[in-house]
């Protein structure tokens, strides 16, 4: 399988990349890790006339702390996120999600920004960045803007990225005290994509009650979403198995689950509940360990 021919550019700086994007417009596609785009091009589901490879822009590939914030460049690979000591220590949720993506070879090439911009409804990161209340930085020649993860995912394979914009980094708060997180996933056995993936963050108050939870769900609906009814049901409560199980029943409330040959809508809904319950229980256990 051979992609249609295209012109190829490999800018060394973000400025060069932005100029190329502006010049070539809708003809151009950005190449990050290429593990969604190249398969689509080989199947001729995509046939861009111009490919702008972001792989040589080293500034986009870093994980750093800025005070209480964690900032990750868009071209950071899944493997780098999975193995980051900084993330494991200060905000392990994204690293835990990265470790669940594809396989070793895919994680060595695939990137955070590429996966987010592709917005596959069964991708792992969207659940995590939603649960982390991450902010995404979008840059174009017109300027820089920040979009909340909530507003970034618009629909199936559709994001808030405008023509000419490049997603350059994401940022989110590191875990505070008494905070635990977990990402649990039901794998589609052949592709490794999520039939259901649930990312949770649980924050306890000084008395051990639930200060706040965040629940991001992927795989279930055309786009990843926050299970706000679950979050509301837990707020202020002294959490236990029963309360978590009850709240998890609302994991797919108000969404119309996808249905395909891998899983029916009913099954996805049922698994959303199961994995929400398990992820919350695990996050709670971890939060208690960090008392």
């Amino acid at each position: 399988m051979i992609p249609r021919g295209f012109d190829y550019f490999s800018p060394q700086t973000l400025e060069e990349a932005l100029a190329l994007v502006a010049e070539h417009g809708a003809e151009a596609k950005l190449l990050a890790g290429g593990h969604s785009l190249l398969p689509m091009m080989k199947l001729r589901l995509a046939a861009p006339g111009v490919l702008i490879d972001l792989g040589r822009i080293s500034d986009l590939r870093a994980i750093r702390e800025e005070g209480e914030q964690i900032v990750i460049g868009a071209m950071t690979t899944h493997a780098e996120i999975e193995k980051s000591g900084l993330l494991r220590r200060r905000a392990p949720l994204l690293a835990e999600a990265a470790a669940e993506i594809g396989d070793v070879q895919v994680r060595n090439r695939g990137t955070l920004g590429g996966a987010l911009a592709h917005a596959d409804p069964a991708a792992d990161y969207p659940a995590a960045v939603l649960a982390l209340d991450a902010e995404l930085t979008l840059v174009s020649q017109r300027g820089t803007r920040t979009v909340a993860a909530q507003d970034f995912f618009v629909d199936l394979l559709t994001t808030a990225l405008e023509p000419g914009e490049i997603l350059t980094e994401i940022r989110f708060a590191a875990d505070g005290p008494r905070t635990g997180s977990a990402y649990l996933k039901l794998h589609q056995p052949a592709s490794g994509f999520a039939i259901v993936g649930v990312a949770t963050r649980v924050q306890l108050d000084s008395k051990g009650k639930c200060e706040a939870t965040a629940v991001g769900v992927t795989g279930v609906a055309p786009k990843a979403y926050r299970a706000t009814q679950v979050e509301r049901a837990l707020k202020g409560k002294a959490l236990n198995e029963r309360i978590i199980a009850q709240a998890a029943g609302k994991a797919a409330a108000g969404v119309e689950p996808l249905s395909d040959l891998h899983a029916s809508a009913r099954y996805r809904k049922a698994m959303a509940e199961v994995f929400t319950r398990r992820a919350l229980a695990l996050a709670l256990e971890r939060a208690r360990r960090r008392q």
């Binding site: 190829y8 490999s10 190449l31 290429g34 593990h35 190249l38 398969p39 490879d53 792989g55 493997a79 070793v104 070879q105 895919v106 060595n108 090439r109």
Partner: peptide
């Protein structure tokens, strides 16, 4: 699968120019 700078990658999903 080949090693690219020591890392396992799938060479069918990589352009030679990359």
């Amino acid at each position: 699968t080949v090693l690219l700078d020591g890392q396992a990658v799938k060479s069918c999903t990589l352009l030679a120019v990359q």
